[in-house]
Simulated scan of single mutants.
Amino acid sequence: MNPIQLRQSIRDMLNEDIGAGDITTESLVEANQQSSAVLLAKQSGVIAGLPIVAQVFQELDPLLDFQSQVAEGQKVDSFQTIAVLSGSTKAILTAERVALNLLQRMSGIATLTRQLVDQLEGLDCRVLDTRKTTPGLRPFEKYAVRMGGGTNHRFGLSHGVMIKDNHIAFAGSMQKAVEKVRQRAGHMVQIEVEADTLEQVKEALSLPIHALLLDNMNINDLRKAVAMIDGKVWAEASGGITPETIRAIAETGVNAVSVGYLTHSATALDISLDFVEEGTENNA
Rank of each mutant, 00 (worst) to 15 (best):
A235C: 14
D17R: 01
A37C: 02
L85T: 15
Q104C: 10
K176Y: 14
D61W: 00
I249Y: 00
L85Y: 12
L262D: 00
D196R: 07
G240A: 01
V145L: 10
L39E: 00
A37H: 05
G231K: 02
V29Y: 11
E141L: 12
L85K: 13
I168A: 03
H153C: 14
N216I: 12
D196M: 06
T245P: 00
R184F: 11
G156V: 11
T111F: 14
F275Y: 09
R105T: 11
Q67E: 09
I209E: 01
I246W: 00
L100V: 03
S44G: 09
I109D: 04
I92S: 03
R7T: 07
C125A: 08
R114L: 05
M188C: 03
D77I: 12
D12A: 09
L120C: 04
M1E: 04
R146V: 02
D65N: 14
A204I: 00
V259T: 07
N166L: 05
G150P: 07
S27C: 09
K90M: 12
K142C: 04
V193E: 02
S86W: 15
D215P: 01
S206T: 01
P3L: 05
M1F: 10
N220Y: 12
V29T: 09
T280N: 06
G73R: 08
V38I: 14
Q34R: 14
R247S: 13
M188A: 02
G260P: 12
T252G: 06
Q200W: 08
I23K: 11
E194C: 07
V257P: 03
V84M: 01
I246T: 01
V117Y: 12
Q55K: 08
S238N: 05
V53Y: 00
L6V: 12
D165P: 05
A185R: 11
V181Q: 02
S44I: 03
T267C: 11
L137T: 13
P51V: 03
E26L: 09
E192V: 03
P139S: 13
M13C: 08
E96Q: 15
E59G: 04
T197W: 02
T197F: 01
V53T: 15
V46C: 14
E26G: 15
S206G: 11
Q67P: 07
L93W: 10
G172I: 06
L50T: 00
G260I: 05
E203N: 04
L85S: 06
L213P: 03
E203S: 04
D165F: 13
A177M: 12
M228I: 01
V127S: 15
R105N: 13
S78R: 13
Q58M: 10
R7Q: 08
V178S: 03
L273N: 09
V254E: 11
I241V: 10
E251R: 01
V53H: 08
V201G: 08
Q183M: 15
H264P: 14
R131T: 02
I246M: 00
D196C: 06
E251H: 00
L6K: 11
E96S: 06
G172P: 13
S272T: 08
T130A: 06
T252F: 02
D230Q: 04
M162S: 10
S86H: 10
